[in-house]
Design a protein around this nucleic acid. Structure first.
Length: 493
RNA sequence: GCACGGAUGUCAGAGUGGCUAUGAGCGGGACUGCAGAUCCUGAGACCGGAGUUCGAAUCUCCGUCCGUGCUCCA
């Protein structure tokens, strides 16, 4: 099945068609860098990271652009209250952004334009819009005149122009120079103490919506394949972009596919700064492993809301541990040299290994099918988990040594492609082995081994009181002992 | 109020017009001195009503409830 994605504009899943064969141009609205990122940002950028990864995996040559909004009311206010240069705040938060994203194993976009580098472009676009009669100069800036292109209204949210007209009539009390309350600012005239740029309409700074239009069109000329962002950006931000972009370029559509991710909720309510119920990425990563968080966030479809809570994280922790555990086991079993041949994968075979391989192959196909179906990561993870079970099952049954190596090769490859490359959930192969030589573990290994020996002796002589006492002692060292068929194993808690 | 999206077992959550996943939890079994891990296995759901259909959780309509947007927001 070919890739389908949900297009906000069409309100349904549509076949994905690119403007240029084999190439994808993708723009995602980035953050306004007045503060640190929170969980909601993590969700958004992980979602588009997975989309980016899957497009590449599907053979597309993807150009991914994500901006930084580095000038805005909030940044100015922040600078004023903190008595600092706004540029300092911006740089600091951009650095923190990269840091957060790296920790979540989010691949870098190809370009990260900053608004302030595009002010010239914005002025150029505004100029054209004025010439074409879509914008007008007022006392306090330049506005886009929505009624100059009414047919473009409500493309993403389905709201009628009349409804908004009446809906807002009660609270249009701003003293701006707008002719109509639906109009939005393209250029804001300077106020005292604010950073400003020169323009034909006097000193000032760009409006929020024009920024994304300028940056996306600068990278992609007149049209591009995917425009993404949070659900809340549909209106007015993205609808404003449709007005600006299409009126400026005379192309329709400029954006071929609109994609919006769902929100992170806390106790059923949207996480937001005004409600005070947000967690920054930094805060949550102090408590949760970054890849576990990543797992938790892609363990649901990118468009559905996620209600973040303890049990969700616990669930993710368990499943993720299982994934790592099987992966680690397989990596350790790789052995030396080339793998020998495995039996032919065949779900109908009576031979367990052959049948198991058939199951894994099938899960791989289902995985791809899930991803092709509007990037259904939830379903894709279900396939990975089923595959993990299958792998453990085959391992449990016992394999000849050469089969075990070959099987491990197969499994490692399978996992690295699905859970690794596509979902971004696996650490580096070396990293997995390095966990074994954790310095904390090294430090107490001798002592633990010694105690385990004594415990083994006690158990052999059925002195279970002593055995349990030793286990308690180990527990006080934060060592968890688990008896398996191959003897006890231990790990640090 | 208008717009958009939801409602699936105890919970979280996918889903194809006929058979339903996945994980946790719960029940049984194997292995265990015990615990845990692992494997096998069981029970358990499709908001209400009407319609289309041989057949609806899936399509249509009505209702109820929930979330989000209509203002800066990922």
């Amino acid at each position: 099945m070919a890739l389908h994605l949900y297009d906000t504009r069409h309100r349904e899943k549509v076949p994905f068609k690119t403007i240029h064969p084999g190439k994808v141009s993708m723009y995602v609205c980035g953050v306004t860098v007045y503060d640190r990122c929170h969980l909601g940002h993590a969700r958004c950028y992980i979602a588009f990271d997975v989309i980016y990864r899957w497009l590449k995996q599907s053979g597309y040559d993807v150009t991914y652009v994500q901006n930084f909004t580095d000038i805005d009311d909030k940044i100015i206010i922040r600078a004023q209250t903190e008595q600092r240069d706004w540029r300092e705040i911006v740089d600091e938060n951009i650095e923190a952004y990269y840091n957060d994203m790296d920790r979540l194993n989010i691949q870098r976009a190809n370009h990260y334009p900053r608004c302030t580098d595009y002010v010239e472009h914005m002025i150029g676009i505004i100029d054209v819009l004025i010439d074409k009669g879509h914008a007008y100069v007022a006392s306090d800036g330049v506005y886009f005149h929505v009624d100059s292109a009414p047919e473009k209204y409500g493309q993403l949210t389905g709201q009628s122009i009349e409804a908004v007209r009446s809906g807002a009539s009660g609270r249009v009390e701003d003293q701006s120079g707008k002719k109509d309350h639906k109009d939005f600012a393209l250029w804001k005239a300077a106020k005292p103490g604010e950073p400003t740029w020169d323009s034909p309409w006097g000193p000032g700074r760009p409006g929020w919506h024009i920024e994304c239009t300028a940056m996306s069109l600068d990278h992609f000329l007149n049209e591009f394949d995917i425009h993404g962002g949070g659900h809340d950006l549909r209106f007015p931000h993205h609808e404003a972009e449709i007005f600006q972009g299409e009126c400026y370029t005379d192309h329709s559509p400029v954006v071929h596919h609109w994609m919006h991710n769902g929100f992170v909720n806390i106790d059923g309510e949207k996480m937001s700064k005004s409600l005070g119920n947000f967690w920054t990425i930094d805060e949550i990563l102090a408590k949760v492993d970054p890849l576990v968080l990543r797992f938790a966030l892609i363990n649901s479809h990118y468009r559905s809301p996620i209600d973040m809570n303890e049990s969700l994280l616990k669930d993710a922790e368990r499943n993720y541990a299982k994934l790592l555990d099987v992966y680690e086991t397989m990596v350790k079993q790789l052995g030396q040299g080339e793998p020998v041949n495995l039996p032919h994968p065949d779900t109908a075979s009576a031979q367990p290994l052959s049948k198991g391989l058939g199951m894994l192959e099938l899960m791989g196909e289902h995985f791809a099918k899930a991803m092709d179906d509007d990037f259904n990561t939830r379903e894709a993870i279900a396939k990975v988990l089923t595959a993990l079970r299958e792998m453990s099952k085959i391992l449990d049954a016992g394999l000849e040594e050469s089969d075990a190596h070959a099987f491990a090769h197969y499994c490692v490859e399978w996992l690295e492609e699905t859970a690794g490359t596509v979902l971004g959930l696996l650490p580096e192969r070396e990293e997995v082995l390095r966990i074994k030589i954790d310095p904390r573990r090294e430090a107490i290994a001798k002592k633990v081994e010694h105690l385990l020996e004594k415990r083994a002796e006690a158990r052999a002589s059925k002195d279970y009181a002593t055995a349990d006492a030793i286990r308690d002692e180990l527990a006080s060292l934060n060592v968890i002992v688990t008896d398996t068929a191959d003897g006890p194993v231990w790990e640090l808690r």
